[in-house]
Simulated scan of single mutants.
Amino acid sequence: MTGTDLPGAERNGVVQPDATSQEIYDGGMVVRREVLGAAHVDRANANKDEFTDDFQDMITRIAWGGIWTRPGLTRQMRSAVTITAMVAHGHWEELAMHIRAAITNGLSRDDIKEILLQTAIYCGVPSANTAFKTAQQVFKEMDSATMDAPAPPN
C-alpha cells in the first residue's frame, strides 16, 4: 500500500489516523527506495544489526513514511531543504547522499549550485566551500560511473 492508496493521503501522506505502523513503514520504504535508490537502501538494511535495527526502522517510518510521503512539498523542494540542513549542520556524508537524491528527484546541477550559493549566505562561506567540494566529488563519481557503464545493446 502506498501513501496515495489511503483515504486523506492528499493531506498527510501515509500517516493517517487509521494507518498501521506497517503501512507507514511500507510507504516510507517505497519513497526511501525511490529517492535514495534500492542499492543504497539494501546496503543500509544489510548492515543493520541488533544495535542499529531500531534506528533504521525509525528513519524509515518517521522520516520517509511520515515526512517524505506528505504531498505538501515537491520532492525537489524537500531535497533543497534537506541539502540546506546538511550544509548548516556539517553532515558531509549525508550531504553527498542527498545531492545524489536531489538529482534523482529532478534537480539539476545548476539548481544544486544555486542552493549551495544560498547556503553560503545563510550557513556561512566555509560550510558552503565544503559543500561545493562535496558536490564536485559526487558529480565526478556520477560522471565516472556513467562513463564506465556498458553501452546498451543495439
Rank of each mutant, 00 (worst) to 15 (best):
D5Y: 07
L6E: 13
A9Q: 06
E10K: 12
N12V: 10
A19I: 06
S21D: 15
S21Q: 11
Q22L: 09
Q22P: 05
Q22R: 13
E23Y: 03
Y25R: 06
Y25I: 06
G27S: 04
G27Q: 02
V30L: 13
V35Y: 01
L36F: 11
L36N: 04
H40V: 13
D42S: 13
N45R: 14
A46K: 09
N47T: 10
T52V: 02
D57C: 07
I59L: 15
I59W: 12
T60D: 08
R61A: 05
I62C: 03
W64M: 04
W64K: 00
G66I: 06
I67S: 01
W68K: 00
L73H: 08
T74I: 12
Q76E: 14
M77D: 13
M77N: 08
S79I: 00
V81Q: 00
T82M: 07
I83P: 01
I83Y: 00
V87Q: 01
E93M: 13
H98F: 08
I99H: 02
A101H: 02
G106S: 12
G106N: 12
S108H: 13
E114R: 06
I115S: 00
L116T: 03
L116Q: 06
L117R: 10
Q118W: 12
T119R: 00
I121C: 05
Y122K: 01
Y122L: 02
P126R: 04
P126Q: 10
N129D: 10
T130N: 09
T134N: 09
E141H: 08
E141A: 15
A145D: 15
A145M: 10
P150V: 13
P153Q: 12
N154H: 12
